[in-house]
Design a protein around this nucleic acid. Structure first.
Lengths: 209, 209, 209, 209
DNA sequence: CATGAATGAGTATTCATTCAT
DNA sequence: AATGAATGAATACTCATTCAT
């Protein structure tokens, strides 16, 4: 189901992509210098260009590597067959985990999304990831509305943007703080679940890991 | 209540800020060149530097000018004394209006916020604006929860981030499309208002799905 | 009649073109470096780029400046109305003079012609000059054949290439040596004039200024 | 009589020289890249450097290979003992043939000669070839003048340059066009042969205008 | 013989900034 | 206020060459 990176990341290319990612997270695309990437990897600039011919190709490589990493986390845990409530829970937990274990990925992704507006190559690399995430959430929301666990007046397409917007905007205000995240996730949860439902939405109620 | 721009924008400085803003909206900070700004204003680069000594100062000027414009829109309509439901409504309407009339401001602001993470000067200029908006929404939400028009289990601080995140993320998916915005705003509305309340939330209800 | 350089060579541009010319004469296009040109003019590379935006534009400027200089020498002395014999004489004298006073121009021109084969811009700049020279010689030869001063079996178009080829190839063997040139010019003369004609081809016979 | 290539061209070295030649013909020395040569041969650059240690050595190899090829064509047909008229004829025919069958050699040679002016190694490799050709033509012309078949006022040394200059300059104007070449060759012929001679210059006369 | 990877020294070009006028 | 000209410091990219395998 995932669209894999066409050229699998061999040793050096993997190192280069990793160095580029952390530099983008630190300084943004504005401050991304090929020389810095080479320095961080510990190679000569010419060597960098041997492995990745142009800066544009490098950004594309970065975009693809990040998309793959981001999507890999989503696919790790099987969601098929589980009820929508549980799947939304998993979605929030996944985001929380990425926030804690790979905040750098999150920051770099934010830069990438901003850049995608002007760079068609980046947009092309990022789009499948965005679409995948959005569709996944839309499906969960639609199914949850239909089975009565979510609000009956829920608009899945609009609510999906609400979920994504809330999650991605949160770190801009609070950073990777997991406690603060739980509070946001809980609010999102309450905004979505069906308030008229008798039985509680699951064994453990938010907030909580 | 507004924090005024320390150096008032004289003719040339105002033109420069406007040119910088539209260029940032078009190309992002990554592609912002002083020469392009001068060209757009119709002056020489040396003249640009006469009015704004450095690029850093220029970015600060831009940040301040945008903050002032953004906050001016909020202050235009008096909100004091009105009920929370109505004030939330106005908040959404304000955003919608900015989206329609000054989408460029919105785009440039997104770039500015991204940049603020690494640029303390920009952060300092932007922060009051962000704080102002966030506090305003938090207040509305808290009062609305307390008067029973919003969800009783609402967490105003978390929900404020949800509102801001949804609004600012929306254009990334749908652009300045007002129809699509109304759908998002309606969903946000339903996520916030008190579903158990008898009387309708106001004279005009937002268009649903 | 001459196609002038569209942008007249102002001070700096003139200096740059001159520096480029002597460097091309010395090292060929292969060894032409913008930095060397800037050094020779005594300016910074950035300043060079201020006056001539790209290397390509610089080469075009060079080509145009050389074309103009070369053609100026041809136009200096009025040839209208004079008999073909005398005009051919002037043609050879002109070449001899350029050889003596501006051998650098000659060398650089040779490089330019070689480059024109692959560079359409250079070709476009050079072509009018080549055509002008060729046509001028063809006309002289045709008229001289018709008035009986040149060989009656002369093929003006073919002979023009013979004249040009002999003149331009000569320095490759003998350098700018004027004595050696006179010998070549004399041979060319004898190859062209009508051997059956009674009266001598002119007051003074070659070689000799 | 031929000066053989000191290191005989083994398989790979031969291939490399051939690839270099066609690349020089296409792009000139200015655009000659070792990597392109290796690519055309189908080997790695490191392998290229195994066979030819430096670029300079490569250019020397190229010069030697071209000199050998060019001179081989001259030696193929025995000229000894034949009358000057016939030998000049053969000289022109040889050139015509090279023009038709190996125009690439001709183009590359032109580049090489231009480069020889600045590169002593190339000059050293090329000089014997140039000298050989020049001397050969001078001898033909001197003998033809003495036996009355060529102009009696012929200056063999000057006329040799005229012949070489005409032949080598021709392709710059007309390319490898054989019809156009015949016209030039005919003109050259008429410029050299003795016009006062009764008997025709040979069994087959060159096509005239 | 052959190659993948690496590199030092360049190479044109860019950009914010300065300064004399 | 305004500008033409100038510049130092970068910046992405190139190329012949080397070396371990």
């Amino acid at each position: 189901m995932s669209i894999p990176c066409p050229e699998p990341l061999t040793g050096r290319r993997r190192e280069i992509a990793a160095a580029a990612r952390s530099l983008v997270a630190e300084r943004g695309f504005e401050g991304l210098r090929t020389r810095d990437i080479a320095d961080r990897v510990g190679i000569n600039i010419a060597t960098l260009h041997y492995h990745v011919p142009t800066k544009e190709a490098l950004i594309e490589l970065l975009a693809l590597s990040m998309r793959d990493d981001f999507m890999a986390q989503n696919i790790a845990r099987p969601r098929e067959g589980r009820p929508p409530v549980e799947r939304l829970r998993m979605e929030l937990d996944d985001f929380r985990e990425t926030l804690e274990t790979d905040y750098e990925l999150m920051l770099a992704l934010a830069e990438l999304i901003e850049r995608a507006r002007r760079d068609e190559n980046v947009a092309a690399a990022i789009r499948p990831m965005q679409k995948h995430w959005r569709t996944q959430i839309e499906t969960i929301l639609a199914e949850g509305r239909d089975d009565g666990s979510f609000r009956t007046d829920l608009d899945p397409e609009a609510a999906a943007i609400m979920v994504i917007g809330t999650l991605t905007t949160f770190p801009r205000f609070e950073g990777p703080n997991p406690k603060a995240f739980d509070r946001i996730a809980a609010e999102l949860w309450r905004a979505i679940i069906n308030p008229g439902r008798d039985d509680p939405p699951g064994p453990q109620i938010l907030p909580g890991t």
